[in-house]
Structures are given as structure tokens and as C-alpha cells.
């Protein structure tokens, strides 16, 4: 009995630490947007999929990507792949990450996409996000929202002019063309997710 319990708990820890892999079904959620409304993936009846981006207000890498995230949403929302931004930080663990701060930033930058607060930090561990920004591209299929790509937006976080590989754009283009993305896992430098 004890062995089984240990096995089960280690399985839980494994899942908890590693989150989703490409091919897994991603969970839906109901999180508050900066306008106070709750947002869920199921609300998007016409979407073909989602560009879910864990990002935040204060991480300079997230800030450096804001314009590129807006550009992704502008290009792909109308094609069926809207950006859904989720702030995974615990506002009690770091300043500048309250919903009101998020609202201010969204207004300043003119975010065209929902910017949701992972209140209670229940969502990011399920996905396995470890940092901001961290992208999960989901493709809506009959069985659910299938994870098709995990990682970076492109290959040059600190310098947009040095970008050679546009990972997220390439992956969404492939999905829109009815193909699987060629590159499914990438890495970039980011800020650790802040917890108490």
C-alpha cells in the first residue's frame, strides 16, 4: 500500500513538474481579464486554436516581446488563432503584477488580446510554464485543445532585429496549412515565475 502511495505521489510530482508535452490535451480555465470579465477557451467558438502566452508586467524579457505579441495577435486572431495572455505571477510575491497594474499596461500598450490573471496560480503548473514569456500553441480538435508547440516566440528575445527564426509564426502557419509544426520545442531566456 505504502509503495503504491509513493508511486502515485511521485507520478503526481512528475506531472506537476513537467506539465504538458506536445500532443497532450490542454485544460480550459476561467480567469479574470483586465476588464473584470472571465475568459475561457470555450468562449471562442470560431477559433481554430490558441496562442497561449504566459507573460507578465515586470519581466524585461516579457516587455521586450510585447510588440511582437501584439503583432502575432493582429496577424493570427482573424485567421483563427487568437493570443491569450496569462500572467502567472503571484502579485503578493512581486510588485507591479496586480490586476490593476495589468490593466494599466494593457491600456498603455493597446493589447488587442485578453490579459488574464492566474489567480491562485492553478493554471501555469498544469501547463508546465516555468518562466515569462512561455508559449503554448493549442490546436482545437474534437478531442480537445491539443498542444502543438511549446517554447519561445522567436530566437532572439533581447534584440528583435536579430530574429532569424519566428517559431510561433511558423508553427501557426503550419497548423493553418493543415500540417504539423516542424519545430515543436524551443527555449529562450525568461524570468522565473514568482511565487511565495
Amino acid at each position: 500500500m505504502k509503495t503504491i502511495l509513493i508511486l502515485i505521489s511521485s507520478l503526481f510530482i512528475f506531472t506537476h513538474n513537467h506539465g504538458y508535452k506536445v500532443g497532450d490535451i490542454a485544460t480550459d480555465f476561467s480567469l479574470s481579464n483586465t476588464n473584470g470579465e472571465k475568459v475561457s477557451l470555450v468562449d471562442y467558438a470560431d477559433a481554430k486554436g490558441f496562442i497561449v502566452i504566459f507573460t507578465c508586467n515586470t519581466c524585461p524579457y516579457s516587455v521586450a516581446y510585447e510588440d511582437r505579441i501584439i503583432a502575432l495577435d493582429k496577424k493570427y486572431a482573424t485567421k483563427g488563432y487568437p493570443v491569450i495572455a496569462i500572467n502567472p505571477n503571484d502579485p503578493a510575491a512581486i510588485g507591479g503584477e496586480q490586476l490593476i497594474d495589468m490593466k494599466t499596461r494593457a491600456a498603455e500598450k493597446g493589447f488587442t488580446f485578453p490579459y488574464l490573471q492566474d489567480k491562485g496560480q492553478y493554471v501555469y503548473p498544469k501547463y508546465g510554464a516555468t518562466k515569462t514569456p512561455h508559449v503554448f500553441i493549442l490546436e482545437k480538435q474534437e478531442k480537445g485543445n491539443v498542444v502543438q508547440y511549446i517554447g519561445a516566440i522567436d530566437d532572439s528575445s533581447r534584440n528583435p532585429e536579430a530574429v532569424k527564426e519566428r517559431y510561433v509564426a511558423d508553427a501557426v502557419d503550419a497548423l493553418l496549412a493543415g500540417q504539423l509544426p516542424k519545430v515543436t520545442y524551443t527555449k529562450a531566456i525568461g524570468c522565473s515565475i514568482k511565487t511565495l
Binding site: T130, K131, I189
Partner: peptide
């Protein structure tokens, strides 16, 4: 980054 983060350690997600 995708090259050198993996080269430095395959388990590194890229967070500092």
C-alpha cells in the same frame, strides 16, 4: 538562445 540554453544544460528551461 535555443542553441546555447540547451548546450549549457538540456534540462534548463531558460528561466533565471
Amino acid at each position: 538562445e535555443n542553441l546555447w540554453i540547451n548546450a549549457i544544460d538540456s534540462t534548463w528551461s531558460g528561466a533565471i
